[in-house]
Design a protein around this nucleic acid. Structure first.
Lengths: 233, 233
DNA sequence: GCATATTTGTCCGTATGTATA
DNA sequence: CTATACATACGGACAAATATG
């Protein structure tokens, strides 16, 4: 029986069994777990028991393992042989790596904004406004989500779905480390004005300045996260 | 029974059963299939039957599906719901997408060469020399491989393993479309001098010029591939 | 260090739903 | 419309490795 400790969060898991749905069961299970991880309800280091989870979600071990594999490929989970799967724990070098990726991809995408596909620029502005609106409502988790949309929209300026895809994985992984910030509100809030500034430069056709601003922005965010990581762990 | 048409290539499949080997069975299966795809022995559009392949390789369907997932994640295979997995067929828009990714990632990595980690620059030069040596031996497939190493080394200048990873998938996917070139020798040979030129600019500290040269290079390669694709497809 | 219990790794058989001929 | 072939998903079995006492 479930003697293991991690029974709290398992209990509240549910899987939408509605309709036939185009996607597979494993994909839906992966979606549920992905939300739990990115929303911080499943913390890094937690072990995901095949038996407990399978029972809670009402799926077989084989399908559950399929969902695990999907999330392992996205780097949200890690698989240790004969020991199980765990929510990924990011180290300092992982954070540096993530920002190295983002500096290359996001800044370069900004510089190419002049050749951006139709509608891509508008999605950048929409993400900025989404964040500002959420801040006015004091909905801080949504501010964080809007911030992710902003950066995803910047990558979208390059017009490559493969680049969008790689960026979305990196941004999801990024959420594994946001929870170390003691004051997430202040952390995300500070970047609202930065996003607006970059957006305005972009619509002014000053792509090079926008890219430079974003680079300073990413440097600062990396510095803050590394500091928080080394402080407590 | 094997009534399906695709029995020729399945027959010659073998899986190294030697030793315990550090890697999993699925990883070895994926390696065998990856080689078949990148070497052009398994052509785009071919369906991979779970039953036939599992029997030929002597592995269970579960293990085989794991291998399929690995290769699907690399975009070498596509998975159509309830229809099976197929060797990916690239369309013109895929080629444009690939080069969109490469323009952003490779050119931006070149521009950051000044902050490249130790040894990264040397790996660029080594790849250039590897290609030149292979050309002197008239080993054209190896010239193609060295060319991939060159571009991978350029991305390595950015110093992000996640970026390296994304780039390696894109470069592997690129091989799905090389087979449409009627004269692969001429295609790869033409870029040997370009690689050397970019490498020299890089070692001269003229990163911006190197990035501009690479951009023209990628534009030209894309144009050639699109032309070849629209001609016969 | 040893013996036991638990968990994962691998594989099989089968039932059901879906697409194609 | 029927039949066939196949992927999807489940449940069970046993081996192998790990964790626990």
């Amino acid at each position: 029986m479930a003697h293991t400790s991690s029974t709290h969060w398992v209990r509240e898991l549910t899987l939408e069994r509605t309709a036939i749905s185009g996607s597979s069961t494993a994909a839906r299970v992966a979606g549920v777990l992905r939300n739990y991880v990115t929303e911080g309800r499943l913390l890094p280091g937690t072990r995901l028991s095949e038996e407990d989870l399978g029972e809670a979600l009402g799926v077989s071990r084989n399908t559950l393992r399929e969902a695990f594999r999907l999330l392992t490929h996205e780097r949200l989970l890690v698989h240790r042989f004969h020991r199980g799967v765990f929510v990924r724990t990011l180290a300092v070098e992982d954070v540096r790596d993530l920002y190295g990726f983002r500096r290359v991809v996001e800044c370069s995408s900004l510089r190419r904004a002049a050749q951006a596909p139709a509608g891509a620029l508008d999605r950048v502005r929409a993400a900025v406004e989404e964040g500002e609106a959420a801040a006015r409502r004091s909905a801080w988790p949504e501010v964080g989500t809007a911030n992710m949309h902003f950066h995803q929209a910047i990558v979208g300026l390059a017009g490559s779905v493969r680049l969008d895809d790689a960026a979305s994985h990196v941004l999801a992984e990024q959420r594994l480390v946001f929870h170390v910030m003691a004051a997430p509100r202040a952390f995300h809030e500070a970047y609202l004005a930065e996003n607006r500034h970059i957006c305005d430069l972009l619509f002014d056709g000053r792509a090079e300045e926008a890219a430079a601003a974003l680079e300073r922005y990413l440097d600062e965010a990396e510095r803050q996260l590394v500091e928080a990581l080394t402080a407590d762990g």
